[in-house]
């Protein structure tokens, strides 16, 4: 069985934000402008959080890319009254836009605040409307959206593998964030394949999860410290 997962090496992350930009481009995420962003309506499926350690002048900045953790035990799922978000057989936390009626319960119940509501009809400043990804829906106003682990790329790779009558190879699927990371801090793959790189990283002692004591069983693993 496949269980998609991601390992993010926070020791490698330089906070450059290329992942967030790539995610916007790949997934047709709208920008809301400065005013609405200040009201907390900015949409970034992938965002970089900053933590400052120490006292000036000995300050160290740590960066943490945060995206939907694709929880195995997701708090967003049971609160949806229309079953628009659920766990797929491949371990993704799916979001079905066509079902969503916009109650926003899921976003309120997400401890990672990685769900974003479309307050406005999507608008893309020219010429961005010409680079929309045809494999990803443009979400209308009134629905919730969030990171999909680039499900369109997963499906494309699975389709190519099926045409060539083989299994999907480890490393064949790269999410937009992992592809664009100059420090190669983001590794995507199948956690249930013991030979995969992401499963290997998940077995190291550097592994942590975000808000681990909530028992949400995230599929995103953060690596920190160690040699």
């Amino acid at each position: 069985m496949t269980r998609w997962g991601m390992a993010i090496d926070t020791d490698r992350c330089t906070g450059c934000g290329a992942c967030a930009v790539a995610c916007h481009a790949e997934n047709n995420i709208q920008t809301v402008g400065e005013v609405e962003a200040a009201r907390g309506r900015a949409m970034h499926w992938m965002r970089i959080e900053r933590y400052y350690e120490g006292v000036f002048p000995d300050v160290k900045v740590r960066f943490q890319p945060v995206l939907c953790q694709q929880c195995g035990h997701a708090p967003c799922e049971p609160v949806c009254p229309v079953y628009a978000t659920y766990r797929t057989p491949e371990g993704l936390n799916a979001m079905v836009y066509a079902r969503c009626i916009g109650t926003r319960y899921c976003a309120n119940n997400c401890p990672y605040t990685t769900r974003y509501f479309n307050w406005f009809a999507p608008e893309f400043d020219a010429p961005l409307e010409r680079q929309l990804n045809p494999s990803v829906s443009v979400r209308p106003a009134g629905v919730m959206e969030k990171c999909t682990f680039c499900v369109q790329r997963i499906q494309d790779a699975q389709e190519v593998a099926a045409q060539e009558e083989r299994e999907v190879r480890d490393g064949e699927i790269k999410t937009a964030c992992s592809q664009s990371c100059p420090a190669q801090a983001i590794t995507f793959g199948d956690l249930d394949d013991p030979e995969s790189l992401v499963a290997l990283l998940a077995r190291t002692e550097r592994t942590t999860h975000l808000l681990e004591d909530l028992s949400t069983e995230p599929s995103v693993i953060y690596l920190r410290g160690g040699r």
Partner: peptide, 8 residues
């Protein structure tokens, strides 16, 4: 018949 197979 997984929703996300077609709707994403």
């Amino acid at each position: 018949i997984d929703c996300m197979t077609c709707h994403h």
